[in-house]
């Protein structure tokens, strides 16, 4: 049985079509990432898959339970880590975990033991009795995750769990995701950081404007763009003429100009770079910095959408 099988999900909010015909499959025990920029429809997808939003069309099977026909069955196999922190900040971490544990059907001694275990996992045993409102952002995020671990669910959804926190907390969260996988938990992970998707995922689906535009393993996705390199440049002056010239230069696939930075997709940087410098000199523009990158998801996104996947 597949962990998650999504067929033709649709959701619109009035005029906004947040999710348009999304299909994907997640195997048991893998980490599957939905990668996409702000507003891509990741949270909307997760909300439908956790029975919070009713799809306009389509359905999904979560370990065989249909969203539409068996929402309670779906909820009982899931742990959900919402994008925004959803905790009672006037209760302590241990009170929060105890309460949420009860909501997941845990009781008595088993509940108590599990709360202590989870406090260990999220590294907050020392601060367990402090009210959440006194916690740092990173600590709150960890409790937010801890809640979803309480009942040892087979599947965990994590919606951008690393947004807005320090590198150290981020590292510990990524490690805990990997630890979950090693215990056999299936993780559906959303992010707009391609490094996270790259590091964690067995499979990645790239989402943009409500649609899945590509899906596969990291290597499969990178192969979409072939042997392209990505070159990021800055110039001492803006020049529309130069950009036009570059677009016509042999070996240049794409030029994307945003916020004064230029991102180019080229066949082989060794051959193309001299031509770029030549054109710049001809236009009386100086190139002040150059950065060359081997193909990655960023390149794939650029290739597929013509836009950079920015933070």
């Amino acid at each position: 049985m597949k962990a998650i099988e999504v067929t033709n999900l649709h959701k619109a909010f009035g005029e906004t079509r947040a999710v348009i015909g999304v299909n994907f499959t997640v195997e048991q025990g893998e980490i599957f990432s939905l990668l996409g920029p702000n507003g891509a429809g990741k949270t909307t997808t997760i909300s439908m898959l956790s029975c919070l939003l009713r799809p306009d069309d389509g359905d999904a099977l979560i370990l065989g339970h249909s969203l539409r026909k068996d929402p309670m069955g779906v909820k009982s196999v899931l742990g959900v880590v919402p994008q925004e922190i959803a905790l009672y900040d006037d209760l302590s971490a241990s009170e929060n975990l105890t309460f949420w544990g009860k909501m997941y059907g845990l009781r008595g001694a088993a509940l108590k033991a599990r709360v202590n275990e989870v406090l260990e996992i999220i590294g907050l045993t020392d601060r367990a009795r402090d009210r959440i409102k006194k916690y740092s952002g990173g600590m709150k995020r960890r409790v937010n995750i801890g809640v979803a671990l309480l009942h040892k669910p087979k599947i965990i959804y994590m919606d951008e769990p690393t947004v807005g926190i320090d590198p150290q907390s981020r590292r510990s969260i990524l490690d805990s995701v990997l630890a979950l996988k090693s215990e056999g938990t299936t993780v559906l992970y959303t992010t707009h950081y391609m490094e996270e998707a790259q590091e964690l995922s067995d499979h990645i689906a790239i989402m943009d404007h409500g649609k899945l535009i590509a899906a596969g393993t990291h290597n499969e996705l990178v192969r979409i763009v072939g042997e392209a390199d990505r070159i990021t440049l800055s110039l001492n002056a803006e020049s529309a003429r130069l950009i036009e010239a570059w677009k016509r230069t042999r070996g240049v696939q794409q030029v994307d100009a945003e916020d004064g930075n230029l991102t180019l997709l080229v066949d082989d940087s060794n051959q193309v770079l001299p031509r770029l410098f030549e054109a710049a000199a001809a236009s009386d523009v100086r190139i002040t910095s150059v950065d060359i990158q081997e193909p990655d998801l960023e390149v794939v996104f650029l290739h597929l959408t013509g836009r950079a996947l920015r933070d």
Partner: peptide, 14 residues
């Protein structure tokens, strides 16, 4: 508004 209600609705509680 503080999103704990939606979260409650993701738990297996009617």
């Amino acid at each position: 508004e503080q999103l704990t209600l939606p979260r409650l609705f993701t738990t297996p509680t009617p």
